[in-house]
């Protein structure tokens, strides 16, 4: 049977035009019967079903993402603010003020490693809250 005839049969079935199907030739009616069988099968529900608490689990995860962001946002802003002020202050002292630091001169030499160290701690905290904590909550 050629594609045109098959297309016609499929079209009639899509339209549910069984009267037109009954007027087809015997060969075409046989094909239409097979297609009907296929259509029924295609309308059958797949076996896969979601767990009964699916909606609750998704809502809990969405809530957890919301609260994680609510916790992180001020935390990140505070850390960034402190680092910005500290960097600005150190830069200002570096350029404009020459003072004898005495005992603190050793500490002063380490000012940038200290700033980067604090920044690294902040980033680790951030990673902990965004990646590790969210994965942990996902797992439970």
């Amino acid at each position: 049977m050629n594609d045109k005839k098959e297309q016609r049969i499929q079209q009639l079935l899509d339209q549910g035009d069984f009267e037109a199907i009954s007027k087809l030739s015997e060969e075409e009616k046989e094909e239409a019967g097979l297609y009907e069988f296929i259509y029924k099968g295609l309308e059958a529900e797949p076996e896969f079903t979601l767990s009964t608490d699916f909606a609750d689990t998704v809502v809990a995860k969405a809530n957890s993402k919301n609260s994680t962001w609510r916790e992180i946002s001020p935390f990140v802003l505070i850390i960034l603010g402190v680092l910005l002020i500290a960097s600005g202050a150190i830069w200002y002292f570096d350029v404009n003020i020459k003072v004898e630091l005495g005992f603190f001169s050793g500490l002063w030499k380490l000012r940038w490693p200290i700033i980067f160290g604090v920044m690294a701690v902040a980033l680790i905290q951030l990673a902990d809250k965004t990646l590790i904590k969210s994965r942990y909550t996902k797992a439970i």
Binding site: L50, F54, A55
Partner: peptide, 30 residues
């Protein structure tokens, strides 16, 4: 969030059909 739950309930069948027809691995579907 109750409204979100309602949205899930209304559409979970559709999403389950789409995912289960396209993804063979049953462990990953849910």
């Amino acid at each position: 969030m109750q409204a979100f739950k309602l949205l899930i309930k209304q559409n979970e069948r559709l999403v389950a059909h789409m995912v289960s027809r396209l993804v063979d691995n049953p462990e990953d579907r849910e």
